[in-house]
Design a protein around this nucleic acid. Structure first.
Lengths: 207, 207
DNA sequence: TTCTTCATGTAATTAGTTACATGATTGA
DNA sequence: TCAATCATGTAACTAATTACATGAAGAA
């Protein structure tokens, strides 16, 4: 009886998926690619490891199936797991945590060239556009009532709107920043801010 | 001569701070609280550990000072460090990575109560407001030309605008989501999405 | 003079990732 | 029938966190 390690947000994220339906670990990795990864990204190997922890805690059951000479495990939530999930939802969760390397690079652009900064901003813009494309496809599916898990539509609309606004904000920022950096002199160390941009920032932060 | 571990984005983040001026580890933790932590959050202990790695790589130097009977180390960037920093800025950085537990909780709200979801959204709103307050204060300082590191103002305007738009977006989303959830029935499992909300999401994602 | 907070670090632990191994399936 | 990709996992490693220890400075 190994003492099961304590539950993390990742545990509850996976438990939440199991509350929708049973999944194998590989199927969980697909959900990670499609949806969960946008707000709680984790490596595939976590999705093989974490469900075992849920089983140790009695929050899920693992059912072994055969695929040829090979086995696979399909996990499903238990009654105790559903209670644990409800409990988690009453707890104060963490606010958004952002890790944004490209913004770091732009924020210290004075140690590189203007071209470096513009390339980084172009990558940010492309990132937002690509993410938005996938998100739009999902939104369109829901719009025509064809999205998966229709019984979860009300919740998906909330997260979908967040991601929509988020990607849009990133793209608009990248466009604006690109225009600003294009006005910089060749040497970014000589760049000075436009007072209008500062004023506009203050205005946008005043609410 | 221990083989120095490879450099991570965290290494370059700290190296970037050292490029501005020399700092002790404690002073770095203060910068983490004030600025860096918004886009690259790390625990204080990293700021004691990582500079040593930079020294191992020859990218920084550590100078030991005495404070009473105790010592402290002030780190400064080397010429090699400045070259490494320039090199990093030419490399494709990662796009924004979001970890948002509260959004996870709202996205699986059907396993809790409507009150749970509303409490979580209120916490998100409060988070955005608090972050925005600090950000606005910084923006106002720059507006009147009194912000720290004026020679970096052009770069700070870029990151400052991103954070401003980001916090505002989070707050507006939380307000909207709160209004939506207030319309839900007592049992969130019975909640259905408003078609207008879906349509509006599609519209916002169409760009 | 004692308590609290500031300041400087190290040690222990863990959450997570990358790398690897290999069987099953599909399609050229 | 061979190669590529899908699918299922484990092992090794590491980046990061939390916990701990303690001296210095300021305030009651």
């Amino acid at each position: 009886m190994s003492r099961a390690a304590r539950l993390t947000t990742t545990s509850y994220a996976i438990l939440s998926l199991l509350a929708v339906q049973p999944w194998s670990s590989y199927e969980l990795t697909q959900q990670m690619d499609r949806s969960l990864g946008r707000i709680w990204p984790r490596a595939a190997s976590k999705l093989y490891e974490e469900p075992k922890k849920l089983v140790d805690h009695g929050l899920a059951r693992g059912r072994t199936e055969s695929v040829g000479a090979r086995e696979r495990t399909v996990y499903s939530i238990s009654a105790k797991g559903r209670r644990a999930l409800s409990g988690w939802l009453t707890e104060p969760g963490e606010g958004p945590v952002l890790s944004f390397e490209q913004l770091l690079q732009v924020g210290f652009a004075e140690h590189g060239t203007r071209a470096d900064a513009l390339a980084t901003l172009a990558a940010t813009r492309a990132w937002a556009q690509e993410r938005n494309a996938g998100n739009l496809a999902a939104a369109l599916a829901y719009q025509s009532g064809e999205g998966p898990f229709q019984q979860r539509a009300a919740q998906n609309v909330l997260t979908g709107r967040f991601l929509t606004d988020y990607y849009r904000m990133v793209a608009e920022w990248a466009d604006w920043a690109t225009a600003v950096v294009q006005q910089w002199p060749d040497d970014p160390r000589q760049a000075a801010p436009d007072q209008d941009d500062v004023d506009e920032t203050v205005r946008r932060a005043s609410w």
